[in-house]
């Protein structure tokens, strides 16, 4: 088995207009900047972007928003310092926004990857973000039923990979990447070092079964 692709363009080639795309990262850490730039060149439009943040400055997800490629953002924290392109599109009513508590976002993504129909969480119970959702009392405590969140594609950032698609990460660049790999129908990773030999099975964080393609991209932000 060999999941290595020659370049970033080949990795994003299957992404179609209207696709839902998970993008790993938190702040500036663990974001697949190379794959995002390739997606911008590729030209897919009307995308639903699922990520923790909504981009900052003129990099990453902000470039997709700037070029009008995004129809909807699902995230926990869109309003970071410098998230001007998100704010501009949001204020103009050009994009839809779904705000999800960060832990609920991670768990909804994990649930989709794990084949679950949802889960009950105390997070958000009694707040605006639970309005219209089913609730249940368990041992005197209120819980909210949250649905799984799958996606068509995931763009990931990893430190090392092997031809089988096994991934390991660097420091806090791990964040959402492992759960997004699980939840997407087609997950592709830009990897600082793709090696010809197998990773030590003890060091594998994301098993290759969750990853459809890897491509080398040495640049670390």
């Amino acid at each position: 088995m060999d999941k290595r692709l020659p370049d970033l363009a080949a990795a994003v080639a299957p992404i179609t207009d209207g696709a839902s795309v998970m993008i790993g990262g938190f702040g500036s850490s663990g974001i697949p900047f190379g794959l995002i730039a390739a997606l911008l060149d590729h030209g897919a439009r009307e995308l639903t972007i699922i990520s923790n943040n909504a981009g900052a400055g003129e990099t990453g997800i902000a470039t997709l928003l700037r070029e009008g490629r995004v129809a909807k953002v699902i995230c926990s924290y869109p309003r970071s310092p410098g998230s001007i392109w998100f704010e501009r599109r949001y204020e103009a009513g050009e994009i839809a926004l779904e705000v999800v508590p960060q832990g609920t976002l991670a768990e909804r993504i994990r649930a989709a990857g794990a084949g679950l129909g949802g889960f009950l969480t105390p997070t958000g119970y009694g707040t605006l973000l639970a309005e219209g959702k089913e609730t249940r009392m368990i041992d005197g405590r209120g819980y909210v039923l949250e649905a799984p969140l799958p996606a068509d594609f995931a763009l990931l950032r990893a430190e090392r990979a092997d031809p089988w698609g096994n991934l390991s990460y660097h420091a806090t660049a791990r964040n959402f990447n492992p759960v997004m790999a699980m939840a997407a129908r087609h997950a592709v990773a830009e990897v600082r070092a793709v090696q010809d030999t197998p990773l030590d099975p003890e060091t594998v964080v994301t098993p290759g079964i969750f990853v459809q393609a890897v491509t080398q991209y040495e640049v670390r932000p």
Binding site: L97, Q102, G103
Partner: peptide, 10 residues
């Protein structure tokens, strides 16, 4: 201002 909840509710 778009709402931004982050991890506070969790």
């Amino acid at each position: 201002f778009p709402p931004a909840v982050g991890g506070a509710m969790d």
